[in-house]
Computed example of a mutant assay.
Amino acid sequence: MKHADHNEIAKAAALDFAHRLAPRWRMTLGNDFLGAYMIGSVAHAGFSWRYSDVDMALVTAAGISPGTLDRIRSEAVALSPDWGAKVSVFWADGSFSCGRFPPLDRVDFLDHAIPLLEYERVRPVRPGLNEIRHYLRGTPFASWVEFAKSFAAAETLERKDHKAYLRTLLYPARLCYSWMTGRMGSNDGAVAFLSERNAAGLDVNLIKRALQCRQAAADPDELFSARTMLLSQIDACAALLAT
């Protein structure tokens, strides 16, 4: 079976799982529930059976308490230990004034969300490019730099870190794409976008090799010898964010 076929079969299974999970979340949240949605790579493109998360979004009238959020995550694992472990929950109240819904994920919600169960459609204000860039300069960049420096200094790559390492190699493409367009794109789309532009200082070939590894659902061990190149990738991305 081709990797693309395997990914499409897995994507369909993930979507089926999400459709079965949404009514359980509706029961847990009761009348506060407004809608459950699929976002991320299942919704837009580039789903990988091995490396993708299952990004799901919940909109409620008044938000979700920490205890209820724990129940929601437990229900996902109870329905399917395999798929449930991959679920990443994004959530907001009816005005999108609280919760876990960063600007880029709000853009993804507006552009690509697949309704699973919906009682009231709530649309947040679309973040502008300045807001997106302010967000990218903050926690996302700092978190990526921390991972990149850690991997650059590592002597071995453990299997449990394969996904994180590959994501770290690919992040400059996602960063450049969102910085320049204000949109959320797939890894495939972001790398294609980057390949057509002059990305000063970036090793685009390394990013392409990381994408090929992801597309093949392969181990990234062959890319580990390039880990020190992450330091120059940091410098290139920092220069972009300084513009």
Rank of each mutant, 00 (worst) to 15 (best):
A36E: 01
Y177M: 11
R183N: 11
L202V: 12
I207C: 05
D16I: 02
A199K: 06
L230F: 01
L240F: 13
Y171D: 10
F96E: 08
A61K: 08
R183Y: 04
A153L: 05
T168W: 03
E8G: 02
T228A: 01
G138T: 00
A238G: 01
D203W: 00
D53C: 03
A142E: 12
F33E: 14
R24D: 10
A239E: 06
T181I: 10
R26L: 05
G30E: 05
L206M: 09
F90K: 13
D70C: 04
D111W: 09
K160N: 05
M38T: 15
A153P: 00
E118I: 03
A18K: 10
G182E: 04
L157K: 06
P140F: 08
S143H: 13
S52F: 07
Q212F: 09
A18Q: 04
F17V: 02
A85K: 13
S195D: 07
M229G: 12
S88A: 15
D235I: 00
A85E: 10
I39N: 05
E146C: 10
F90S: 13
D93K: 04
A148W: 01
R50Y: 07
D55R: 08
L211N: 07
S97L: 11
D93N: 13
T60E: 06
A210H: 00
R209W: 07
A199S: 03
P124H: 08
D5K: 07
A13M: 11
P103C: 13
K2E: 11
A113T: 05
R24Q: 14
A113V: 01
L34C: 15
E131G: 14
S97Y: 00
G185A: 14
R137S: 12
